[in-house]
Design a protein around this nucleic acid. Structure first.
Lengths: 111, 111
DNA sequence: TAATTACATTGCAATATTACGATGAATGAA
DNA sequence: TTCATTCATCGTAATATTGCAATGTAATTA
């Protein structure tokens, strides 16, 4: 079918999945890593940095903006993109909370 | 096209994206969270837990196994699934390293 | 052996994603 | 005003994902 049955899952599960989806394409990871390094940049910089078409980068940036990880402000003719600090912290906590849930079983009888 | 141009990106970028993809569906998140809580379980337990068909769960489990996050060992008629401790640690470090890269700009002149 | 249980795999339909050319909108420069 | 720059959006083609019924496989039980 291709239609995810989100109603079967908790809000937390859906939220983790939604944010993970933002990270699930290397172009978006590359954009995020570039923003982390450079602090702010414009669409055409990213077109230079990666080898994708401008329309494609714009589409990826929109997804990152929709999730809230990235912010963009109009700066004359260009748009300044950067990491949304508050959301970044939130995402970090959400994933860390999950990562820390694992406590290896005392006996190794599971697998 | 629908075909990700992985050759444009670094190994690290592709690896983060690949692992994030494993987390990008709420059913797989639910499976992982359940395994974290319960330590080990079988396919049919998950079918009860979530409302998806057995074939669908099996498919999600296969993806998690392919990535390495989950291990499965045959236990008579059933298969015991559990978190792969080594891979879990690796994934945790990979994501934490990324999360910690962010240092908010001294001046808020970006966005 | 025959039936049962637990999963995996196959095949398919519905939908989502990826990529990009073409085009549109807005700003600034000549 | 006209042109160039920057980016968003639209439309479309190629491919990927999701979900499940049907079927296959292997081990256990009667």
């Amino acid at each position: 079918m291709g239609l995810t049955k989100t109603e079967l899952f908790t809000d937390q599960q859906n939220e983790i999945a939604q944010i993970a989806k933002a990270f699930s394409h290397p172009a978006r990871v590359a954009i995020i890593l570039h923003l982390l390094k450079i602090n702010a940049c414009i669409n055409s910089d990213l077109v230079q940095e990666m080898g994708l078409a401008q329309a494609t980068i714009s589409q990826h940036l929109r997804e990152l903006k929709e999730i809230g990880i990235v912010k963009g402000t109009i700066e004359g003719v260009s748009v300044n993109y950067c990491i949304n600090a508050e959301k970044w912290e939130e995402v970090k906590l959400l994933f860390n909370e999950m990562f820390e849930r694992y406590n290896p079983p005392p006996t190794n009888d599971c697998c």
